[in-house]
Amino acid sequence: MLQTTYLPWSYNDPFADMRRLQGAMNRLFDGGRSSERSGAYPSVNFWVGQDSVVMSAELPGLTDQDIELTVKDTMISLRGTYPEPETGDDIRWHRRERPAGSFLRSIELPFRIDPDHIDARFENGVLTVEMQRPEDDRPKHIQIKSS
């Protein structure tokens, strides 16, 4: 069949590659983190396992008390506030590149997660959250009998 419409999210989009390349170039010449570019903060990485998902985010300078993690059904929310930079009359600033202020990010997950089986760790400025799928929500294996 002849394809007549180009859906922007389909693989047939002729500009998708170009945009991807542009994004890659921007990241390359950015020389640093892409978090400021995408608008959503903090940037997160995801890994999936059999019945679980792992999320990680870089939050340097925070402590585990500064981060608030809430989970409801398929939504995970990450909230936090960076400590105030030092103040005083005798301070003269030369550079200020590090993140400041507070953030809130909510992410929709592909499945429900069991709020009783969440393992969150904060180490060296990196938050790692391991989430499990509830038992009754997991895909069932069905045995196929041969006659």
Binding site: W93, R95, R98
Partner: peptide, 26 residues
């Protein structure tokens, strides 16, 4: 290799450099 974000300021007689290096152990 990334360029870590830094804050640099002078406080009295001391220059302070703060650099973000998430994921690095001490």
């Amino acid at each position: 290799t990334f360029t870590p974000a830094v804050d640099i300021f002078e406080k009295g007689d001391t220059t302070v450099i703060i650099a973000d290096m998430p994921g690095v152990a001490s």
